[in-house]
Design a protein around this nucleic acid. Structure first.
Lengths: 242, 242
DNA sequence: ATTGACTCTCACGTTACGGGATACTTTATA
DNA sequence: TATAAAGTATCCCGTAACGTGAGAGTCAAT
């Protein structure tokens, strides 16, 4: 698809697509020899993600950061975007209630406090939207990059050790006791350096196979380890949640 | 109330209030002798209006224009804002449906067309939001029309007379003395039947070329008259303000 | 009398595009 | 097949709505 087709499809301007290309947020998968941008299906999916994030108030830099991150998990992104949209609808509902009140008020039918007049507007009082924006940015970027980057050699050793031992058992079933025990160790280790919910843990596992950067790193310890860990982490999560 | 109190109450920054003051959108009703801004209840009501408009995507210039307009009617503003918020919620609902579909889709449960992936995003396909923004500008127009419709024949004659005389000189420069004198007459005439600020007057001129209903009517007196009047009214405003 | 929280006015910086200029490419139409 | 019309490219300046200090005055409480 060429620029205008995409622009028309999603209702944004051609200039916007140019801009996203410029800043490296959405680079067309291909270009014709004349230099025309050609967008793929994957590009469209990314664009959809971008627009969701935008709707939720993230700025483009943050969006790029998130989507570039090695631990970016589309599934989890979608889930959290879903949550945030629901949150946003709540806010909108409040605003609608507020305006309805205001109309009655201005007709002298009811009275209203100053606070009431601004219900629904307050972005500060809305923990989710603001916090989530930071949580997400930090979670994605910091936890992946910073923390592993700042690991001491000691920690690094421990880290490698776990991977080696997991590699050793990677041909067992992910449901097996041994596998689950090792995965638990992995989970606990992770929670020493970060703070992972079970859901996030599962998401992380999915990334091991979905993101080739991860897959490559992990499979250095043994072919198929990423796949194995992903499965085991999923099982672990499902068994332990609730 | 002082800046920070207001800012905290409604969840915006102090800088924003400063900004609104700077551009004349929300001027505090009073200031202490130390120069501190003091906001009144009326100020708060206006601020609420401003925020509603903002939520609906109007830019500050337009908001100022609307609220400065002599025909601004808070009641009606509230009603239309209410409508637009409902419209917005509809869009949000679509987006939520879309994301839910996407989640299922990405889990391979259902399939999705490209269009479906962007439902709720498309601002073009959403007539209300975009159009309404213009319509609302047009409200100023329509009400003006209403008024001219109700003119007596006597007034109508006076009205036509001005237009004919303007048409006669429409090939002069809008800055010329004659043009400016005629435009002044026009301005004074308008202020007999309505109440136009200079800014509103300028805005009216812009509408003469932007709104074809106006353009058509006016150009009946002479091709290009609308354009000429718009230019002359702009000059007149700029020269006479402050 | 001093501290800390507020406030003021500059004034420059930033984000996410808009919009025009100019030139090339592709598609539609005669 | 020529020629117009529509689409696309890059370059680059503009703008809207604040953010973010800097430097200085003000106010309420200890």
């Amino acid at each position: 698809m060429k620029v205008k087709e995409v622009a028309d499809l999603v209702g944004i301007s051609v200039r916007t697509l140019h801009h996203y290309d410029e800043i490296g947020l959405l680079i067309p998968e291909d270009t014709t020899e004349a230099g025309y941008r050609v967008y793929s299906e994957k590009n469209l999916e990314d664009l959809q993600q971008i627009l969701f994030f935008k709707e939720l108030g993230f700025n483009l830099k943050k969006i790029k950061e998130i989507m570039d991150s090695p631990i970016f998990d589309r599934q989890e992104a979608l889930r959290m975007q879903h949550q945030m949209l629901l949150e946003k609808r709540k806010r909108l509902n409040k605003m609608i209630a507020t305006i309805e009140k205001t109309i009655k008020h201005s007709q002298g039918e009811i009275s209203m406090s100053s606070e009431e007049k601004f219900e629904g507007f307050d972005f500060n009082q809305n923990p989710y939207e603001k916090e989530a924006r930071e949580k997400w940015g930090d979670k994605a970027v910091d936890q992946a990059n910073e923390k592993t980057k700042n690991m001491t050699t000691f920690e690094q050793e421990r880290f490698n050790d776990i991977f080696r031992r997991l590699a050793d058992i990677r041909h067992l079933s992910p449901e097996s006791e041994k596998a689950q025990a090792m995965i638990q160790e992995w989970y606990q280790y992770l929670n020493k350096i970060g703070n992972y919910s079970l859901e996030a843990f599962k998401g992380l596992g999915e990334m091991y196979v979905n993101d080739e950067r991860f897959t490559k790193n992990i499979d250095q310890f043994g072919e198929g380890l990423a796949q194995f860990m992903c499965a085991a982490m999923s099982v672990y999560t499902d068994r332990n949640k609730k």
